[in-house]
């Protein structure tokens, strides 16, 4: 066998190694629970979440509510599907997309330090929004999101959904075909 053929065989063997299923399961549960915990308060209080998005000043204010309405539900759906192991690769793509968005927003906020005009002061709602997200202006959450981005990328590339609903459906279909 040529070198190229050997390399292809080796890459393919690595890509389909059964160990990926176990590692991906752990990643899916960690990321899934993180997203579930993050989505819940946003679903319960969309107005407060809208204030938090407005604080970043990245979107025109008229369209902030669209994101405030849609994003928590996408997070919730993605979290549940990740935990269940259904359509894991597609869910991982969605997770990666959301994480890229969070990373860009956090990096923007960190660079700009959410500066406010020196003569302004916060209304109670504004102060509450800033208090809720003051810690996010630091780099801790940024690196956490970067780590989760790599983890979700791993799931997209290597997870076959063996430990989850995808794997279950596959085994049921195979059994049916076998009969």
């Amino acid at each position: 066998m040529s070198d190229a053929g050997l390399l292809k065989k080796w890459v393919g063997a690595f890509w389909n190694h059964p160990a990926h299923a176990g590692v991906s399961l752990v990643i899916r549960w960690v990321v899934g629970i993180t997203f579930l915990v993050a989505a819940w308060p946003k679903l319960l209080a969309p107005e407060d979440f809208a204030f938090s998005i407005a604080l970043y000043r990245m979107l025109p204010e008229r369209y902030v509510h669209i994101l405030a309405i849609a994003l928590p539900m996408v997070e919730l759906f993605a979290a549940v599907l990740f935990l269940a192991g259904f359509r894991v690769r597609g869910t991982a793509v969605v997770m990666c997309g959301m994480l890229v968005m969070f990373i860009v927003a956090l990096a923007y906020a960190h660079v700009h330090q959410l500066e406010m005009p020196s003569c302004g002061c916060f209304t109670p709602a504004g102060a509450r929004a800033l208090a809720d997200h003051a810690e996010e202006v630091g780099t801790g959450l940024l690196w956490r999101d970067v780590a989760m981005l790599f983890a979700c990328g791993y799931v997209w590339l290597f997870d076959t959904g063996r430990f989850g609903v995808d794997g279950l459906l596959r085994r049921l279909a195979a059994r049916k075909e076998g009969k």
């Binding site: 809208a50 204030f51 407005a54 204010e61 406010m116 005009p117 302004g120 916060f122 209304t123 504004g126």
Partner: peptide, 8 residues
């Protein structure tokens, strides 16, 4: 508009 800042 979002009432983030108010007059001091």
């Amino acid at each position: 508009p979002f009432d983030l800042l108010g007059p001091c």
